[in-house]
Design a protein around this nucleic acid. Structure first.
Length: 375
DNA sequence: CCTGCCAAAGGGATTACGTCA
DNA sequence: TTTGACGTAATCCCTTTGGCA
């Protein structure tokens, strides 16, 4: 994603927007507010736009994994890459990092292979690329299936997730549960709810209908699923079966619950991102306003000084990172073409990482892109 | 009656694997 | 024996549907 700040004429798009494909232009929003032209360009730096959000999501998931694995290394690599090819560039990149880590999708067949985490053989994730992917994507060792099944079958002490499920299950109903007598005493509503669901499901089963059944998971079931989701937001088949068995749900129900839960997480993250971009927009608007004012002052100074144009042209440039203004004297006033040529190729990333903790666009601890990174 | 939440279903896409020519 | 095409199964995400508080 790229953010471009245009001062003055918003009708003239950024250079990198003109040069790039139309999809970037489609993602460009020009905001005119109170007489000031403010242009913010939101575009994907990689070719992930074509397939809607899907490919982008997968890419971001991979990036999230990297972040999870080694934040420091990732930051350094980003810094290094950026400074290599974007020195002196003025484009800014926002790295939107979702809050919840999303693991790489793993084929169920891979998960069932000997090096998959279910067999406890990938504790260090050193079983090659595929093994690493499986180990990184799903930390299923947190809830060993064998242990889960043991807890489920024995229904004994030991597991923090253990619940007294199915004690009042209706005969013949394999899907729903009614909760325990203790649950009924504590939270009668839940039991009533479960009973209703149980009753509905039971009726449907008795009628032999395979129609959609609307059920509300009990608080216990939801809490259990939530705990599971916290540990791993995707399931492999064994985990799914274990969960379903433990909660007295169909595996399909567990699967659907996880899908919907992921969707809710993503929705929340989108809202957070939206709010974040809004703040960025406000900050950039304010900065644009400030620069406009500065420009007017310089123009006023120029008109008030009749000898101004006789002196060699002076260009004021401000480092986007440290906000220091540098003056360079040239023989002739710079042209747009000359400035464009001086800028070099369009960058794809910032010379320094801008992640959420460091509020865009003005880092609290600015690092000059031309300076070597502090060791 | 309206609305929001949420479980569930449907559909397209992706991936891994097996089969076969 | 290797290879590419094809089918299948499983899962994903996205969107929509429908029940319920």
């Amino acid at each position: 994603m790229e953010l471009g700040l245009s001062l003055g004429d918003a009708t003239k798009p950024f250079g990198f927007l003109k040069e790039n494909n139309t999809q970037k232009q489609q993602n460009t929003a020009i905001i005119k507010k109170s007489g000031l032209d403010f242009c913010i360009a939101l575009g994907l730096t990689s070719s992930t736009v074509a397939d809607g959000g899907r490919e982008k999501t997968q890419k971001s998931q991979e990036e999230e994994e990297d972040d999870d694995d080694d934040d420091d290394d990732d930051d350094q690599s980003s810094e290094g890459d950026g400074s290599d090819d974007t020195q002196g560039e003025t484009h800014l990149q926002l790295n939107l990092l979702p809050l919840a880590p999303a693991p790489r999708r793993i084929s169920p067949r891979l998960q069932s292979l000997p090096w998959s985490s279910d067999n406890g053989s990938s504790e260090n994730g050193s079983s090659g690329n595929m093994g690493r992917a499986a180990a990184k994507g799903l930390d299923v060792n947190r809830l060993p299936v064998a242990a889960a099944e043991e807890v489920s079958s024995a229904n004994s002490v030991g597991s923090p997730f253990q619940m007294d499920l199915g004690m009042y299950r209706r005969p013949g109903n394999g899907n729903q549960m009614g909760g325990s007598k203790r649950d009924f005493e504590a939270t009668g509503n839940d039991v009533v709810e479960a009973e209703r669901a149980s009753s509905r499901a039971s009726d449907d089963d008795e009628n032999g209908l395979n129609t959609r059944k609307k059920l509300r998971l009990t608080k216990e079931q939801s809490a259990f699923l939530e705990e599971s989701f916290k540990e791993h937001n995707t399931l492999n088949p064994k985990q799914k079966l274990a969960l379903a068995k433990q909660l007295n749900l169909r595996p399909r129900q567990v699967e659907v619950w996880f899908q919907n839960r992921r969707a809710r997480t993503k929705l929340k993250q989108t809202e957070v991102d939206c709010e974040y971009l809004k703040r960025c927009c406000e900050t950039l608007t304010e900065e644009n306003r400030r620069l406009h004012k500065e420009l007017q002052e310089l123009r006023a100074l120029k008109t008030s000084n009749p000898f101004y144009m006789q002196s060699p042209a002076t260009t004021l440039t401000m480092c986007p990172s440290c906000e220091r203004v540098a003056t360079t004297t040239t023989a002739a006033p710079p042209t747009v073409a000359a400035a464009s040529a001086k800028m070099g190729p369009i960058p794809k990333a910032l010379p320094f990482p801008l992640t959420r903790p460091r509020f865009f666009p003005f880092p609290q601890t600015p690092t000059h892109p031309n300076q070597p990174a502090a060791s």
